[in-house]
């Protein structure tokens, strides 16, 4: 019973943390655009949170630069269990055009485990929304 309530509440209100790991900003504005009136993810109970300690879902963009690698791992560790990671954009999946540049790790999954990948350069807000919904479906 308690288990079911916990699962239900987790599904109904995922709190997200938006993390930029060296992205070109386009994916980031699309993540923010998903919060604004046209797409409005807040109606699905999604709230953007400022600190990793409040978040359930980390939405991360960017190819992970070497400089920020340690911080990402730290942020991932600060997020309470259960935690989920959505990699938004071609960058976070594989490095996109930056593949081969000397200062990137080439994808988020090189650093932390990833649950859902949202492709696109940049991923459209509707695609990001779809990613969140798919993630909730797996709970």
């Amino acid at each position: 019973m308690l288990q079911r309530i916990v699962r239900w509440s987790r599904k109904k209100s995922p709190w997200i943390l938006h993390l930029n790991s060296g992205a070109c900003n386009a994916c980031d504005i699309e993540v923010v655009a998903a919060l604004t009136p046209r797409f409005d993810v807040e109606r699905l109970g999604v709230l953007l949170k400022a600190t990793p300690r409040h978040a359930d879902v980390i939405i991360s963009t960017g190819p992970v630069t070497r400089q920020i690698k340690d911080r990402i791992i730290r942020i991932y560790e600060q997020t309470p269990e259960p935690k989920f990671v959505i990699a938004v954009g071609a960058c976070a999946m594989s490095g996109c055009v930056y593949r081969g540049a000397y200062n990137i790790m080439g994808g988020l999954d090189q650093v932390i485990p990833v649950n859902i990948y949202v492709p696109g350069c940049p991923a459209r807000p509707d695609a990001i929304l779809d990613g969140v919904v798919k993630l909730l479906g797996t709970l």
């Binding site: 060296g22 630069t65 400089q67 920020i68 930056y98 540049a101 000397y102 200062n103």
Partner: peptide, 14 residues
Amino acid sequence: LGYNHRGLEKLAEE
């Protein structure tokens, strides 16, 4: 700075 540095200028040479 430096958290977002990807090395694009070098990449462009290739």
